[in-house]
Structures are given as C-alpha cells and as structure tokens.
Design a protein around this nucleic acid. Sequence first.
DNA 1: TTTAGGCGAGGAAGCGCTTCCTTGAGGAAG
DNA 2: CTTCCTCAAGGAAGCGCTTCCTCGCCTAAA
Lengths: 333, 333
Amino acid sequence: MVTLDDVAREAGVSRTTASRAINGKLTVHPERSAAVQRAAEKLGFRPNPAARSLARGRHDSVALIVSETNIEGMTNSFFAMALHGAIREIAKTDQQLVMLLRANDESDEKFLRFLEASHVDGAMVILEAHNTELPRLLAQSDLPVVFLGRPTESAEAPLSYIDSDNVGGSVLAAEALIAAGRRRIGVITGPHGMGVSQDRLRGFQQALDAHGLDSSLVAESDFQTAGGAEAMARLLDQYPDLDGVFVMSDLMAAGAVGTLKARGRRVPEDISLVSFDDTVIATTLEPRLTTVRQPLDELGARMVTALAELIAAPTAGPIRDTLPTSLVRRDSV
Amino acid sequence: MVTLDDVAREAGVSRTTASRAINGKLTVHPERSAAVQRAAEKLGFRPNPAARSLARGRHDSVALIVSETNIEGMTNSFFAMALHGAIREIAKTDQQLVMLLRANDESDEKFLRFLEASHVDGAMVILEAHNTELPRLLAQSDLPVVFLGRPTESAEAPLSYIDSDNVGGSVLAAEALIAAGRRRIGVITGPHGMGVSQDRLRGFQQALDAHGLDSSLVAESDFQTAGGAEAMARLLDQYPDLDGVFVMSDLMAAGAVGTLKARGRRVPEDISLVSFDDTVIATTLEPRLTTVRQPLDELGARMVTALAELIAAPTAGPIRDTLPTSLVRRDSV
DNA sequence: TTTAGGCGAGGAAGCGCTTCCTTGAGGAAG
DNA sequence: CTTCCTCAAGGAAGCGCTTCCTCGCCTAAA
C-alpha cells in the first residue's frame, strides 16, 4: 500500500505539498506539482478514501436506497436501467455509490438512524409502486435526497426530484390514438395515489379534451399484468364501443392485450393500444407495442448530478427536473 | 455528530473500554459493557466507518462490478434480481455494497488500478453475455472475487463462483419435453463460448442420450429475441419433423415462438417448448412459457456470503457453489 | 506472607490524509 | 536600506476509531 508519504519522499517534498499537488491546489509551484504527479504515477498512488473522508469530514459517497417491497415488483428492468445511468454518471466523479436496503419491517426512526449512520453525503430513491411512504420519511431527515419520479405532494417539505415528462408522454400517446381515428378512448391507470398516475392521466385527459373527446373512460389498476387484464375487462364491459386504450405500463398492457384477444378484439384492427415504459415486453408481445419511452438512463444520470448540486448547495431550494419522453411506434396502433 | 468519546464520557469509562464494549470484546466487565451500550443507545452513537476502516486497515465494503456493455443487454431484470439478493444479504452484515463501473474504453491495467484504489475488501461480478473478458482480467488481481455464473474455464487461475444448476435444470427441461411425448427435440443455445451455454447443452444432451434420442439438433444463438427467432427458423429448416425445442432463455423463446407462429406451428399442440430464466416475459407471452427458474435472489445472496468467506480465508482455495433450479410448468409444453 | 498469574481497564500511538498556522524567501514600497 | 507584503512550503495537529502495551488489582499457588 503506497501512501502519500511515499509519494512525498519520492518527489522530494513534504507531505503537505504532496497533498496540495494531488488535490490541484494552486499554492504549489508548477514544477514541484509536476514532480509530485510523476511520483504518484510511478508509485501507483491512490489516496485512501477512508483517510480522506476522515480528514475532510465529507464522505464522497452517496446512497441509493432500495426498498425491499419495491424491488420485488416486476418493474425490475425499470430499476436496472435507471441504476445504470446513475452508475455511469457517478463513475465520472470520485464518489462512490453505495446500495442501502430499507427493510420492510424496519421502523422509520431506525431506518433514519441507519441512514445517517451510513455516513453518506446524500441519498437517492428510485420511486416505484408501493414506495409511497419513503418520501415522507426521508423528508424528516436533513440529508440531501433526490427522487427519481415525482413523489405525491406532501406540502410538508420541498422535495427534490427528477422525473420523465409523464404529462407530455401521455399527450403523445393520446394523440397517436386520435390520429389513428379513434374516438372512444379509454385509459388504464396505475394507483390514483401515485404521482405518475396523476401526471399521466392529466396529459391523457388534456389531449382528449382538446379534441372534444370524452376523457372519462378510466379504469384504475396497479401497474401489474393481472391488474391490467382485469381493468381491461372492466373497461370493455362498461364501454363496449371502445376503440382505443392508453395503458400506463407495458406490464398492464400485456394483460390488457390478453383480455382483448380473449374477447375477440383484434389489436390494432378493432382497437388501438398505446402503453408506457418501452420495456422488453413491448417487443416480445404480439403485436409489438407502441409505447412511450422514458429516458431511464438519463433520468438515473441526472439524479446523480442533481444530488451533487444539492449537496454542494443544501440551502438552494429543491431541484425539480423533467426529461422528455418519446413515442416509440410499433404495431399496436 | 456523536463520537466514541461522547459515549465513553456518558458511560464513565475510557474510550478504549467503550470501543471494546461496542465491538463486543470479552475483556470488558459485563456491567460496564451494559453501561456503554446504554450510553450509545441514548446518544444515538454510530461508529464512523471511515475512522474504523482507517484504524482497522479493513474496509468493510465490497464492490459489485458492472460492466458497461453488460448491463446494456436486455437481461436487466436478471441483473436486478440477483442484485436484490445481494443487497438483502449484505444488509445483514455491517458491510457496504458499492457499485463500480467497468467502462468499455478502459484499459485492463487502468481498471485494475481503479479497483484497487477503490479500497474494497472484495468484488463480485454478475456474469452475463459479452462479459467474458472480465474473469480473466480479475484473475490477475489478488483481490478476492466471486462470480455469479461460471466463467469459462481458463486454467490460469482458480476462480470462485456461484452458479445455478444449469445442467440439472436442462435435464428437467429435456425430461419435460420427453414426458410430453416429444421425440425430435432441438435446442437453441447461447454462444458456445459461454459457460452457461456449455452447461445447459450438456444437461440437455445427457437427458436425451439417456432416452436414446437424437441430441444433435442444435442451433447456436445469442440469448436475444431476434437471435432466437432466427435460430428457430434454422432449426425448422433443417429438421422439419421437430416436435419439441429447448430454448436457453426466455428472450430467445419470445423470438422462437414468433417464428413458430409465423410458420403455422402451434405451441404446444404441434411443438412443445421449454425455456430458461423465468423472467416476466414467460408470463406475458402467449402461450405462457414453461421455463426453468433460476434462484437469482439466492444466487445473489450466496455470492455475498461466499465473498465474505473468501475475504476471511483468502488462501482456502476457490469456492464453487451450485444452487438448484426448478421447472415452472405453464402452457408451452 | 510472598510471588506468580490472570483479568479488566486506561494511556497513547497510529491508521493516511487534510489543513491551520507558521516560517522563510523574495519583491515591492517607503 | 529597512519594512511590509505575498507566495510557496513545511510542521504539526487532528479527523474518530482500534489496539498494543502497560498497570493495578485480585485470586491462587507456594
């Protein structure tokens, strides 16, 4: 293990100077600085993060909080893709990304304590279904936190989040349906309590209203396949003349398509369908789904940079960013 | 920030004693130990991991290496599920899991240096397609490393890995096909170079041979949907009398089912299909896939414990564990 | 009663780094 | 020529913890 002292000795300077040179401080003579760099390179020196953290009182590491219920859901690839973006972004910095589990049976205070004990500079949460109590919980902490996905408004605290443009994406979806000549368009939503559901419904209704269409054909569901199948059946029962449907997740769309087929409705001949997410399922299903793509990778990356900003300027107020979604046209419209 | 000194003062003992009590050392009087525990609890004391790491010369953190090419593949949910198991297991210890990116354009030496600079006690790699050079690379390091998935044998170094029972699972798959009365059974493999492909092919052929069936109807593919579709076509062209097929991933199965339908072969009436993985796709496809389930969650967890063992006893030789797979019966046989 | 031994507890050093504070040298101003 | 200031560099303290070493006490053996 090569330490800063070794480097200093090799370069013929004091440890102080070596430290300054390594950290790019400007109070060191260029020539010596170069010598230190050379020595460090030669010896393969890498600062010990623990020592650094201890001395600086900072940690240079951020947490990604994984809720136990959460990841058990089937939206895993959603999670993985966002994670990928985050990892890629964090690799550009000299920070570390540590994964933290929020166990189901853990009390709020205990988790908060645990989080603070983890000695990270900030935390990130990828919001998925069932994850709704976490924002409220983390708002109590004074640790900088960024969410991926808009938490449902709790006026209590100004939370920071990065989200995809769910409203815009839903407008896109609705307009694709309308452009295909559909006039009786229903929607299968996620839980009304979730921010995503609300935003997507808003966009959908906005677009339909703008075209003078009835935007009240809605069925609430749970983002899962079985739920989608069931909601589709409800919708069909209630509005037999349905000729288009916007489904708020690929997973639910898989269920919906099943119901549609079972009822003898052809997609897209008899009824058009647009879903949301653009996961693998969209391409393995038959027909392949026209779906709204979320820039998961970029969302993950932006989450990291936003957190960095938050850490740098904790008082600067919440960061709220929305990244554009896009429509991927396949065969279901 | 409450430190050990605070706790010591509160408990009326020296810092040394407090440290011993906290760490459960036995050379401290039970009564005092209790006092320390109480003080720590009262003050909400949490040892600073950086200080601890510095003093102990250990790091109490392990890395999960994510290869850039790797996670871009579509097997994301595979990754996420294993990750989940790992996180859950690591949460039981006082270690931290840090995510490390192996960038595509990064040279081997540079990555190795980076890895060592990360000051982790060990590393884990979830092996997926395209990931074949990483084992070779990490074998050069003297850092304890555990793979999820058997790396292709390179006699150079004795690598540790955890794997699911690919051979056994494939036997299960083949036998299900045979039990359904199929006699002309083909197989769509992953790249022959990969350990998984080899193991699964072995199990498959073993089972067929045992029943005196022709086990030479094999088509190599790439674990992806498009590849599966194409391989299925090849197989059908070559062996028109095919009545069963074992496909080594759900993703490829999606493609294969598409080809089968396009050629007017009904599943499972005309041809039975068993795949591997049991991902979401298996349930969203039509028909729902009979598939071999891997205990991804447990694999991830076991990977963590194996690494811990390796760190504790670096000289004890490689750890190689195989966890049982099971057949999930659905509608494609 | 003396001595050896064990045990619980504390002092102090030290892990590798950053940074405050001090010092010395050189140049500008008086 | 002296004084003041600036700048580069080093000494040393200290981040919070562990652990080696030492010390005092009590019990057991002689």
